[in-house]
Computed example of a mutant assay.
Amino acid sequence: MLETGFPMPDIALEDTAGKAVRLADYRGTENVLLYFMRSTGCPVCNGHVKDLAGRAADLAAAKVRVLVAVPEGRAEAGAWRKKRALPFQVVTGRRGTPHEAVGLVKKVFGALQQSGSLLIDRDGVIRHAHAATMPVNGYDKKGIAKAVDDLLRVR
């Protein structure tokens, strides 16, 4: 997993419509919160996304763009996003999963996809990094809130 304080590499992502998504495109304008779900079928992860959706206005006011990264392909991710009417862009990997690109691997005999989050400031520096093997620990709500507050104090 990538670490706080280091530059975020420009990983290859795409949205559910197949459009390339580059983190570098947000540099200088927006902070980006990448939330990595274990899977779209994970009820715990879906609860975390629901909480993020409830905080969407606050995150937008802090100029934080939320991207929900899923390991499934575009079609499945698009259907999942539409069913939940998410206000966020949902992204998948262009080559492999977005999880692999940041070091979130499958644990427990390769059966359990890690989940987590990265908050990248508009200068491209990671301000929050969190990873977990168990889905209940994959969403660090307090850590994300503190990192967003810190961004607001600095700017």
Rank of each mutant, 00 (worst) to 15 (best):
I126Y: 03
L151H: 01
G110Y: 01
V64G: 06
A60C: 01
G103M: 11
A62C: 05
E100V: 13
N31K: 08
L152N: 11
G143W: 10
D121K: 05
F109V: 15
L33P: 10
F88V: 07
G93Y: 03
R95A: 06
G47Q: 01
D149S: 15
A20H: 00
S39H: 11
A56K: 14
A101M: 07
L67S: 02
A56P: 02
G96C: 09
I120N: 00
V70M: 05
L52M: 02
R95L: 03
L86R: 09
Y35N: 12
K141V: 14
G138M: 03
S117E: 15
Q114Y: 02
K82H: 08
Q114D: 07
V64W: 05
R55N: 14
P87V: 07
R122S: 06
A24W: 00
A53E: 13
A101H: 10
A79C: 03
E100N: 11
G103F: 12
A101I: 04
L118I: 12
E30R: 13
G78T: 11
D25H: 09
F88Q: 02
V136N: 13
A129E: 10
P71N: 05
D123R: 14
Y35E: 08
G93H: 00
A53C: 01
S115V: 05
A79F: 02
H48T: 04
R74C: 11
W80S: 05
A57P: 08
A69M: 11
A77H: 05
G78Y: 06
G54W: 02
A145R: 10
P43G: 08
R153K: 15
L52F: 03
R84H: 14
P71M: 06
E72H: 07
F36D: 08
M134S: 14
G73Q: 10
D123N: 12
L86Y: 08
V44Q: 10
A57I: 12
V102I: 13
G103R: 03
R65F: 00
L112D: 09
A131F: 06
S39Q: 06
T92V: 15
T29Q: 13
G78S: 07
V49C: 04
T40V: 15
V32H: 04
T97K: 09
F88D: 06
G18E: 06
H99F: 04
D15Y: 03
D25V: 00
A53M: 12
H130Y: 05
T92N: 01
R22Q: 08
A53G: 13
F109Y: 13
T133R: 12
V66Y: 04
A69S: 12
L86K: 04
